[in-house]
Design a binder for these strands. Structure first.
Lengths: 176, 176
DNA sequence: TCGTGTTGGTTGTCGCAACAACTTGTTGCA
DNA sequence: TGCAACAAGTTGTTGCGACAACCAACACGA
């Protein structure tokens, strides 16, 4: 006979309700972000985030490995994305002078121009679907809650180590 | 001359910090859920959610269109997924008797068995990465915050209209 | 210096999702 | 009725992400 003992701690009503909503949120939010950016500037949210990371980096340049960590991408994925962005003239890649295995990526003027064009609509979307729905208190609570969960999901803080994204206006002002 | 006026309400420090964390969360959470379910029962989280929706439906049966709405899927996507699940013997499809355009999907005994096998590990993952990181207060706050955002993202409450997912033990007990 | 192990990056293959086109069936209206 | 508009699903094509295999370059001990 197998052991039929069920020692699983099932979710109670409140846990289940909160979890269902969180799952729905994580299901819907990426689609909304992708949709707006694709429509307006033909960029996925991932591509946008990668360009923003480059724009706020020193010299607008970053190692592929570092950029992959910052954007939660595997290196193969980033490599494919970088090739597409380079074909569109939005970034440039060149071998790292100090380590000839490595590749550095730089955002071009065209890339800066595109994210400056994209940023207002993106921020508008973020406000419309998320921030404007929350009170100042809830904003703080969200910060704490997401921080607590990220302590489990991303203990090394790879994703959140990035510089502030929108607090200083367009990328040209922030990264120049 | 183009109008260079910048009337965008850029994010302040607190908004930006909370947003960065929320984005990181929505980026990482789906991967964690998929990974555990794929490893343990060769099911994506989407497939798991679809099976759970069927298991908790009356007669364990649902219209394809309804199921698509409940799982935030397009009908083509659900059609492909349903074909794969049917090939694995986890669901069955048959024409709706009252509307011959429509198709009904039913979860099989094998399907029920698989989600009963999957549920404990899935709940464990949910606890480990999310729920156990939050205080009871934060759980309530998360419920409210996600609810507020979903009011914008999903005003018709298509995704959250589902029955409670884990509050009553295995699917066989819940759906029988 | 040589050889082994490791790191950085690219390329190829497979599976899944988005989108469009198409088939079939239903509804509504003349 | 008969015909036009619409609804429900399926199928085919395209593009992206995951994974594995591969190549190039560095590090370090013998």
């Amino acid at each position: 006979m197998t052991d039929m003992t069920d020692d699983t701690r099932w979710l109670d009503t409140e846990e289940s309700a909160a979890w269902v909503r969180l799952v729905a949120l994580t299901e819907l939010l990426p689609g909304v972000l992708d949709q707006q950016l694709l429509r307006d500037v033909q960029l996925t949210h991932f591509e946008y985030a990668a360009l923003m990371a480059l724009a706020s980096a020193p010299d607008r340049t970053m190692r592929m490995t570092t950029l992959a960590a910052r954007t939660n991408a595997t290196l193969p994925r980033l490599s494919h994305v970088a090739r597409r962005l380079e074909e569109r003239g939005l970034i440039r890649r060149f071998p790292c002078p100090t380590d000839r295995r490595a590749t550095n990526a730089t955002i071009t003027e065209a890339g800066i121009g595109l994210i400056d064009e994209a940023a207002p609509g993106h921020v508008e979307t973020v406000r419309q679907y998320v921030l404007d729905a929350l009170s100042p208190e809830q904003l703080k609570q969200l910060y704490e809650i997401a921080g607590a969960v990220l302590g489990r999901l991303d203990p090394d803080e790879r994703l959140t180590a990035t510089a502030c994204q929108f607090s200083e206006g367009p990328a040209i002002a922030r990264a120049g």
